[in-house]
Amino acid sequence: MIVADKKPIEEIIECLKDHKNILVLGCNECVTVCEAGGKKEVGVLASALRMNARKEGKEVKIDELTLERQCDREYLDEIRDSIDQYDAVVSLACGVGVQFTAEQYHDKPIYPGVNTTFLGATEERGVWTERCQACGQCILATTGGICPVARCAKRLFNGPCGGSTTGKCEINAEVDCAWQLIVDRLKALERLDDYEKLCPLKDWSTDRAGGPRKVVREDVKQ
């Protein structure tokens, strides 16, 4: 899923300081799972904003709503009738949701309420880690199912650097060395010989390097 982290409330308060009618808009997908932008977080943020406005002696209306998704027009349409009441929206969706909402409601300021951080998984409640960088050309088949693009600090394709120490990455003893994981896994798969296959230069044109990307699927298009 897309993992996001909360933005400091001070930062959100600063963005909203000139607005009087605000909608705090959550998303029921990834940001709900990673507890950064679901219904609960919408409630807490809205409550904090209301108290802050009160204390400053400002008359500010703050409403709460959480959509099924903000990356789908169908769900964003649900606020079409009510959006005019607001002069700003704080979206607690990922960066995709924030932008998609802004595209649908062109003349409304939409502020981000979270920092979108990575594509990752839940290690345990409250701990998420990165797994994928969406490079557009998956090489997991050759690396034992562990991605050196996302998980090696230097995205090395042909093996560990000289800084790998007791399974940890040279940048931080809390971070696993991706290449240690790959080697361990190749061993478990009895494929360690594969380590010596040279990995050719990567075609980054399917990555961010190639500019904004698009997937068109004629087979499912309507």
Binding site: A48, L49, M51, K55
Partner: peptide, 8 residues
């Protein structure tokens, strides 16, 4: 923490 931030 939040209450501190909003001045309560």
């Amino acid at each position: 923490k939040i209450l501190d931030t909003v001045g309560v």
